[in-house]
């Protein structure tokens, strides 16, 4: 909690209680008093974004490689699955995962703790369904990002690697991949913020993420509706902004000197 003053996302609930809030309009006082509850939602949103992006990467990276280097039925399967996942609204995917998919999601809750947010509980079954849904959909998009990046590395790089005696796999591993990964950073940046924003759709399956918790709050206190939603919108904006800047920095850090990408 001591760390908390370092970041704008961070808020000390104990200090908040002690804060003299009278100078704030009552509806904003309501928002501040319920920071704890919203912060828990913020935590769920952050964790869900992370798990979904990770699953999307783990599944999407091989999918992209298969679309470029694969052949036959496997490639057709991967590209067809990709087309379908990219064509269906995320809300349909999430609802499908939650209500239909024969995946035995565990029930119950698990506790988490994040710096500056504190501890919060996550409903396991909705969280798992949301991770799988957002993750698979993201995999379909990340596959496209990697596919494009792999294809953008010129064929001459493969020829040159082969001409010093590297095998095709070695060439992909040591020459094509390192360049393709760098080139996928901008696309990955977009994908990251899309997933972050789309975690809000897990509202549809009742996961208590940021938007759902704000809904719970403003249903309870109907005069503070606008304040609550604006407040969480600002939180979302800060998160996308910070994500974008961080990935910008990463892109610059890993950029090849003098290179075009």
């Amino acid at each position: 909690m001591v760390l908390s003053s370092a970041s704008p996302l961070v808020f000390d609930p104990i200090a908040a209680q002690a804060l003299p809030l009278e100078w704030l309009p009552p509806d904003w006082q309501f928002v501040v008093r319920n920071w704890d509850y919203l912060a828990g939602g913020l935590g769920v949103t952050i964790v869900l974004t992370a798990t979904s992006i990770l699953l999307g990467f783990l599944a999407g990276f091989p999918m992209g490689a298969i679309e470029v280097y694969g052949s036959g039925p496997l490639k057709r399967l991967v590209s067809t699955v990709g087309v379908v996942l990219r064509a269906i609204p995320i809300v349909v995917i999430l609802v499908f995962m939650f209500f239909v998919a024969p995946i035995p999601f565990p029930s119950g809750e698990f506790g988490m703790w994040l710096p500056g947010i504190g501890s919060f509980d996550i409903g396991l079954s909705a969280f798992a369904a949301a991770t799988v849904g957002l993750g698979l959909r993201s995999a379909a998009y990340q596959a496209q990002i990697f596919r494009g990046a792999l294809q953008s590395v010129s064929g001459g790089q493969m020829e040159a690697a082969r001409s010093v005696g590297m095998s095709k796999l070695q060439a992909i591993r040591h020459v094509i991949m390192p360049q393709a990964l760098r080139r996928s950073i901008p696309g990955f940046q977009n994908e990251f913020t899309i997933v972050l924003k789309d975690t809000s759709v897990a509202f549809a399956i009742g996961l208590a993420e940021l938007l759902k918790r704000s809904y719970d709050l403003f249903v309870e206190s109907t005069t503070a509706v606008l304040e609550v939603i604006l407040f969480i919108s600002i939180l979302y904006f800060i998160m996308t902004f910070v994500t974008n800047r961080t990935l910008d920095y990463l892109g610059e850090y890993y950029a090849i000197p003098g290179g075009e990408g």
Binding site: G156, Q157, A160, S163, V164, G165, V175, I256, G259
Partner: peptide, 20 residues
């Protein structure tokens, strides 16, 4: 073919240095 290419070097028109 990898052994062959190790024994026969090649220099390209478009150079193809590994950009990274």
């Amino acid at each position: 073919e990898n052994e062959l290419r190790r024994r026969v070097g090649m220099v390209f028109q478009d150079i193809n240095l590994f950009a990274h």
